[in-house]
Design a protein around this nucleic acid. Structure first.
Lengths: 351, 351
DNA sequence: CTGTTAGCGCGTTCAA
DNA sequence: TTGAACGCGCTAACAG
């Protein structure tokens, strides 16, 4: 019995009494008409018996491709990105690709270098919802190098939920966030709300800038609208504080709170309740994303469902297309307003 | 200018006017007294200028090691595992290791084979809180192969939050879940609760079996305790249904609900409130894990804080030790009861 | 139909 | 102090 070393294709060849090339052909599945069925069966049987598994490093080196994509996300604690990963992994698996996840450093995260840290040879990169500075760090990672192709390290790059005008991306997959924000404000307007506060994420990324712009545009067209805005750290606590400020500011109190995120909305509900306000009787609250959190809290949040899974899948499909030299189709993914219990008619005498 | 191909160490050598070996020595950092400082500087400058980055596939092939570990988790949508990853990645980065995440198929997840899907050559595996069957699927992945070392594919395996008696693991890192459950029941007992329902996870994994056993042991020693149990799918909805059943079952209604998980606890609170019961005035609820959800809901959940980050860190440290041929230290990580608003004194006339 | 050969890019050994 | 040569395991091309 050979010691702890794993069997190589050479071992299989020797054991089966054939050449290495034959083993490669058989296990590679392209032996039709090149190797006799009997030999092929013998090779497969031997490989199985020996527990042979190809050395991926050697294969990658020989092929020059790894069939591996890197998915860069700002944070893993957010369920949204977990769903993006799920979708991307599903499409990747269907094309015999792998996905390696790289949670971009938030605070004292992993090393700064995705390509050193995500210790894998990569065929392409997908980046989702990256903050401006984090994105710059990734794009600039090989700034000294001649930027041959679009992405970092000369790799094909697909951006998700990011500025389409961003340089370097071979493709961009976006959600129709503006539509989502319009649906939110439309819903609130139909309920009679006019004094609306926007609890905005303090994160400086494209996705939140779009939400802000869409909110502004939608409320601008709303006659009699009185709009305020507070920015908040992207957490329950952050949402709570910003909302407290918004609700206790001098002047007429808002009757509706439009939050950039379900997490902020959860904080908003807490703040409202601590001020003795009932949701949605005294104040309506909306979220964004439709995380599990949205239905975990009470009342359940009216929010915008983002097809995270689909975005990940589209992103991976686009990346695969780019790798194959094709130009991927581009279209914004539709979003859907989920009307639940956290919104209601504007109170008649709110003050 | 050479076309789109990335520069190799040979290119750097040629450009700097030295040999490949010199480049390797310099960039490998072990040139002290072997290469002149001037040459070393020239090599580094050239490498930077050309944007040279070593081919990881070639390096892995040559070295036989990849400095990469696989982290297998049951699901990414749970913040707990995100934190495990964070901790593991932090320790890994400090040792120049990478971490590749493999979310084990839940439902229609990625491919069944972690080693095909996580397309990377691996030095070791960490598996966290795996359900019995999922673990078997992974362990059996190379069942036909001679099981040389402990883990799958003959790789060093460290188990997190899993049965220490599990065969195949070179080390196990666990949380003191039993203590956590004792603290929960002790807390409720001190508040006067005697009729206690256990809302248990339906997932068949060691971590939940431990919680169940600890709950049973703790309540067994509680004089006058009346204990019931409902199992629930691991979701808000699942917790809601199981709790509804527990609260509407014939006989005296429980005054306290001990949930296996914060998500279940959130569902429990919803169920209680829908039955017109106030939390914690009419019924107390406890969670487990201390996810962000615990403080997002209202009232905030009394729960057991699990040091997920620390568990991941310890797991990675243990794996690195095993890889280095050392035997890692083993000790259960302490957990902490976080007393918040979802628990209160037992109502005096509960019926 | 099968076997032989060559080389992917790297790190290491040996010789100069 | 440096360069030349070798081989890790695999697959694509060619030779038999």
């Amino acid at each position: 019995m050979p010691p702890t070393t794993r069997p190589t294709s050479r071992d299989v060849a020797r054991e089966a009494g054939v050449s290495q090339a034959t083993v490669s052909l058989v296990l590679g599945g392209k032996w039709r008409g090149r190797v006799s069925p009997a030999t092929a069966d013998a090779v497969r049987e031997t490989a199985l018996r020996l527990g042979y598994r190809p050395n991926l490093a050697a294969r990658s080196l020989r092929l020059g491709r790894t069939r591996t994509a890197l998915l860069v996300v700002p944070a893993l604690t957010n369920e949204y990105f977990a769903r993006v990963h799920t979708g991307a992994a599903r499409v990747a698996a269907a094309h015999d690709f792998g996905v390696v996840l790289y949670p971009s450093p938030e605070g004292v995260g992993p090393a700064r270098d995705p390509f050193g840290s995500a210790r894998a040879a990569l065929d392409g990169v997908i980046a989702s919802s990256m903050a401006a500075d984090a994105l710059a760090a990734i794009s600039g990672e090989t700034a000294a190098a001649p930027r041959t192709a679009g992405g970092p390290g000369g790799l094909p790059l697909v951006m998700l939920d990011s500025d389409p005008a961003q340089s370097g991306a071979a493709a961009t997959v976006n959600l129709d966030l503006a539509s989502g924000m319009r649906q939110v404000t439309g819903h609130l307007a139909a309920l009679g709300h006019r004094r609306i506060a926007h609890i905005a994420s303090a994160v400086d990324s494209w996705t939140f800038r779009v939400r802000r712009a869409a909110f502004d545009a939608a409320t601008r067209d709303l006659p009699g609208a009185v709009v305020t805005r507070r920015t908040a750290a992207l957490s329950v606590e952050g949402g709570l504080r910003a909302t407290h400020d918004a609700l206790t500011a001098p002047g007429a109190r808002p009757t509706a709170l439009v939050c950039d995120d379900d997490v902020l909305a959860a904080g908003a509900c807490k703040a409202a309740r601590r001020l003795g306000l009932r949701v949605p009787l005294d104040v309506s609250v909306t979220g964004f994303d439709d995380l599990a959190l949205a239905t975990a809290v009470e009342p359940e949040l009216t929010t915008v469902r983002l097809p995270a899974d689909e975005a990940g899948a589209r992103g991976m499909a686009a990346l695969l297309a780019v790798i194959d030299g094709l130009s991927p189709q581009q279209a914004d993914l539709p979003v859907e307003l989920m009307i639940r219990g956290s919104t209601g008619p504007c109170p008649v005498e709110p003050r």
